[in-house]
C-alpha cells in the first residue's frame, strides 16, 4: 500500500506548507485519505507505478513491459497474417485494413499537404495509433490486472502484484512514446526547413515581441513532452481506477457500460496521440513568418 501512505504524507506536507488557519480542513483531508486507504486495505488497489515482477539483464521487468510485449505479439501476428494473404481481389479483413491504412494515408496527405512526407511518416503515425489503440482495447481483457501473485509487503500486510497491467497506465510507456514523438517532430522540422530556419522559429531577434513569442514557443514545444505523456497516462489510468472503484461497489453489470465507454476513451486517446503528433509535425514544417 505504497500510494495511500505516500498520499497521507504528502497531504500533511502540503497542509503544513500552506498553513491555512483552518486546522479542521487538514484534519478532514487526512481523515478522507485515511478512509480511502482503509478502503484500499479492504480491496481497492491503485498504484501509479507499474509493479516490478522480476529482473532481466539488469532491466526491471514490470508488468506493463510484459503486457506491451503481448500487445506487440498480437499486432505482429495480425500484421503477419494480413500482410501475407494480400490478394488483388481483397477479402473482408484485407478490405478493412486497406481502407484503414488508405484513410490514414489520405488524411495525412491532406494535413501535411505533401504526399511524399506523408508516405514517409505514415508508418510512424499509424504504429503510434495501432499500438496505443491495441493496448487500450486490451485494457479490460480478463486476466489483465487479475492474475498475479500475493507477496508479503514490508508493512506486514499482504500485497497483490498483478502479472499484467494495461500498457498505458505506466508513465514509462507514455513518456517513451512522447519522447519519440517529440524527437520525430523536431527532426522532421529541421530536415524540412533547415536548421537555421527552424531555429529562427524559437530564437527570433527581429523584435522584442517576436523574441518573447519565440521563447514561449520553445517552452510549449518542450511542454508537449509532459502533455503528451500525462494525457494518455492520466486518461487510461483514470478509466482503470474508475472501473476498479465501480467494481468494488457494484461488481456486476454496472461496470460493463463504463468499460465500453473506457474502450471508446482508449480509441479517442489513441487517435488524439497520433493526430496531435501529426498536427505538431505540420506546425514544425510550416515556414516561419
Amino acid at each position: 500500500m505504497r500510494a495511500p501512505l505516500f498520499l497521507k504524507r504528502r497531504v500533511r506536507h502540503i497542509m503544513e506548507d500552506i498553513s491555512i488557519d483552518g486546522q479542521q480542513i487538514s484534519e478532514a483531508t487526512i481523515y478522507a485519505v485515511e478512509t480511502a486507504s482503509s478502503y484500499a486495505d479492504s480491496g481497492i488497489h491503485i498504484a501509479l507505478a507499474a509493479e516490478r515482477v522480476g529482473e532481466f539483464l539488469g532491466i526491471p521487468l514490470t508488468n506493463t513491459l510484459i503486457t506491451s510485449w503481448i500487445v506487440m505479439a498480437i499486432l505482429f501476428t495480425i500484421a503477419f497474417f494480413v500482410g501475407r494473404n494480400l490478394k488483388m481481389i481483397p477479402g473482408r479483413v484485407q478490405t478493412l485494413f486497406e481502407e484503414m491504412l488508405n484513410f490514414i494515408l489520405n488524411y495525412m496527405t491532406e494535413v501535411l499537404e505533401d504526399g511524399k512526407l506523408a508516405r514517409k511518416l505514415f508508418p510512424f503515425i499509424t504504429t503510434l495509433f495501432l499500438f496505443i489503440f491495441a493496448s487500450n482495447v486490451l485494457e479490460f481483457t480478463p486476466g489483465i490486472g487479475s492474475i498475479g501473485f500475493i507477496e508479503q509487503s514490508s508493512h506486514g500486510g499482504e500485497a497483490f502484484t498483478p502479472l499484467l497491467r494495461s500498457v498505458n497506465t505506466d508513465l514509462n510507456v507514455t513518456l517513451a512514446l512522447a519522447v519519440i514523438a517529440f524527437i520525430v517532430i523536431e527532426v522532421v522540422g529541421v530536415a524540412t526547413l533547415g536548421i537555421m530556419k527552424y531555429a529562427s522559429k524559437f530564437l527570433n531577434f527581429k523584435s522584442v515581441i517576436g523574441f518573447l513569442v519565440g521563447i514561449i514557443e520553445l517552452f510549449s514545444e518542450v511542454a508537449r513532452l509532459i502533455s503528451f505523456s500525462f494525457r494518455l497516462f492520466g486518461n487510461i489510468l483514470a478509466g482503470e481506477v474508475l472501473i476498479v472503484v465501480i467494481m468494488f461497489f457494484v461488481p456486476y453489470l454496472v461496470p460493463v457500460p463504463m468499460m465500453l465507454f473506457e474502450v471508446f476513451v482508449g480509441l479517442i486517446q489513441a487517435a488524439i496521440f497520433a493526430l496531435l503528433t501529426l498536427f505538431f509535425i505540420k506546425i514544425a514544417i510550416t515556414e516561419p513568418h
Binding site: A3, F6, L48, F76, P123, F124, T127, L171, N172, A176
Partner: peptide, 23 residues
C-alpha cells in the same frame, strides 16, 4: 511515484521501434 526508470524508457522506446519496423 510514477516508477520512472530510464532503462524501462529505453526498452519501451526500443519496443516501439521494433513494432514500427515489423508493422
Amino acid at each position: 511515484v510514477f516508477g520512472l526508470n530510464w532503462k524501462l524508457l529505453i526498452v519501451q522506446a526500443v519496443n516501439f521501434g521494433v513494432l514500427l519496423l515489423a508493422l
